[in-house]
C-alpha cells in the first residue's frame, strides 16, 4: 500500500467554556489515501466537525486548544503550524465546504469576488485574472449563466446553488483534499443527489481525495470508500464501506443501522433505537464512551478503554472489548 496522503494521529482538541473544559476530540487517528473518499460518521457532538476543523486551522484558539497529536500531509506536519507557510500549505492543499452555505459566504460580497479571493491570496493572481478564473470555476460547478451569476450576491442564490458556489470556492486553488462538512444536510434529496454527483465527478476528474462528514448513512453508502465511525470524541470503528455496512464489529455502528428503516418489504422491522444519549464530554467516561448505552457492555468496559483491534480485513479496526482475545464468551 502506498503511503497515505494525509495521516492524522492521536489528535485531541479541547475547548474552555464557562462550564469547564470540553474534551471534544480525545485521541483520533485515521489516514486518507490519494483519490479516495473517506466518510466520517457520528451523531451531533461526537467531535467529527472539530476534528477536521483543526486540520484546516479553523479552531478558534482560545477557547480551543489542540492538546496533542499530529496531522501530516505528504509527510509534512500541518497542525498548530501558525506560520504563513503553514497557512499556505493548508490553503492550497485543502479546500473545505460547510453545511450551511448561507452563513459561510459573505453576504456583502459579490460571488465572483469571493471565489477570486483565495486565488489572489494563495496564488498571487491579479484581480482581473482571478475574476476570469472564478467564472470558469462556477461553470465547472455547473452554475448556469456563470458570468451574470458571478456579479450577484449570495441572497440571490438558492441553497443548492450556494453549495455549488462553495464548491467553486473550495476548488479555486486546486486542492488535493476536499473536506465537505455535512454538505447536503440542509438540502432536499433531489438537490442532494445533484451536489453529490457533482462532487463525485469533480473528484474523479481531478483525482482529489474527499473527506465527507455526515450523519446520513445513505450518503455514506453512496459516496464512501472508507468509513470512520466516531463516538464521544473517539474513533470506534474504521474500515471499508463494505466492512462497516455488512460486517460491522462495534455495537454502536450496529445500533445506528438498526435504528434506521431498512426499506424492506412490509413493516417487518421495528426500529431499535439506541437508548439514552451520548456522554457528557466535560467529564468523559474513564472507560468506553459507549458503555452507558451499549447492550453488550461488560464490566471491563466501564473501567478500561477498549483496545483498537484489527478485524481480519486490512483496514477494518474496531475499538471494543468484545473483540479482545481476553474477552470470554460467557459475556
Amino acid at each position: 500500500m502506498t503511503r497515505p496522503l494525509l495521516e492524522v494521529e492521536d489528535l485531541a482538541v479541547e475547548f474552555d467554556t464557562h462550564g469547564g473544559t470540553v474534551k471534544a476530540v480525545r485521541g483520533v487517528s485515521f489516514s486518507l489515501q490519494e483519490g479516495q473518499t473517506l466518510a466520517v460518521v457520528g451523531e451531533s457532538g461526537c467531535g467529527k466537525s472539530v476534528c477536521v476543523q483543526s486540520l484546516v486551522g479553523l479552531i478558534p484558539m482560545p477557547p480551543g486548544r489542540i492538546t496533542k497529536g499530529s496531522a501530516r500531509l505528504h509527510g509534512e506536519e500541518i497542525l498548530g503550524y501558525e506560520t504563513l507557510g503553514g497557512k499556505r500549505v493548508r490553503g492550497q492543499m485543502i479546500g473545505m465546504i460547510f453545511q450551511d452555505p448561507m452563513t459561510s459566504l459573505n453576504p456583502t460580497m459579490r460571488i465572483g469576488d469571493q471565489i477570486a479571493e483565495p486565488l489572489c491570496l494563495h496564488r498571487g493572481m491579479r484581480r482581473r485574472d482571478a475574476r476570469k478564473r472564478a467564472i470558469e470555476l462556477l461553470e465547472l460547478s455547473q452554475v448556469a449563466e456563470a458570468t451574470k451569476r458571478a456579479r450577484q450576491y449570495p441572497f440571490e442564490f438558492s441553497g443548492g446553488m450556494l453549495q455549488r458556489v462553495m464548491i467553486a470556492c473550495a476548488l479555486a486553488c486546486e486542492p488535493r483534499i476536499l473536506i465537505a462538512d455535512e454538505p447536503t444536510t440542509a438540502l432536499d434529496v433531489t438537490i442532494q443527489a445533484q451536489i453529490l454527483s457533482l462532487m463525485r465527478d469533480l473528484q474523479q476528474e481531478r483525482r482529489m481525495s474527499l473527506i465527507l462528514i455526515t450523519h446520513d448513512l445513505g450518503v455514506v453508502a453512496q459516496m464512501a470508500d472508507e468509513v470512520v465511525v466516531m463516538y464521544a470524541g473517539k474513533v470506534v470503528e474504521t474500515g471499508s464501506s463494505d466492512d462497516i455496512f455488512y460486517s460491522s464489529g462495534h455495537p454502536y455502528t450496529q445500533g445506528l443501522k438498526s435504528a434506521m428503516p431498512q426499506n424492506q418489504d412490509r413493516r417487518a422491522q421495528r426500529l431499535e433505537p439506541i437508548a439514552g444519549s451520548p456522554p457528557d464530554l466535560f467529564d468523559p467516561p474513564q472507560g468506553c464512551g459507549y458503555f452507558d448505552r451499549c447492550p453488550q457492555a461488560m464490566r471491563v468496559c466501564e473501567q478500561h478503554h477498549p483496545p483498537d483491534v484489527a478485524l481480519g480485513k486490512p483496514l477494518h479496526r474496531c475499538a471494543c472489548w468484545l473483540h479482545d482475545e481476553r474477552a470470554s464468551d460467557d459475556d
Partner: peptide
C-alpha cells in the same frame, strides 16, 4: 434529531 434518537421518537 440524530439517527439514534429519531428511532426513539418514532417508536
Amino acid at each position: 434529531l440524530d439517527v439514534s434518537v429519531q428511532a426513539q421518537v418514532v417508536n
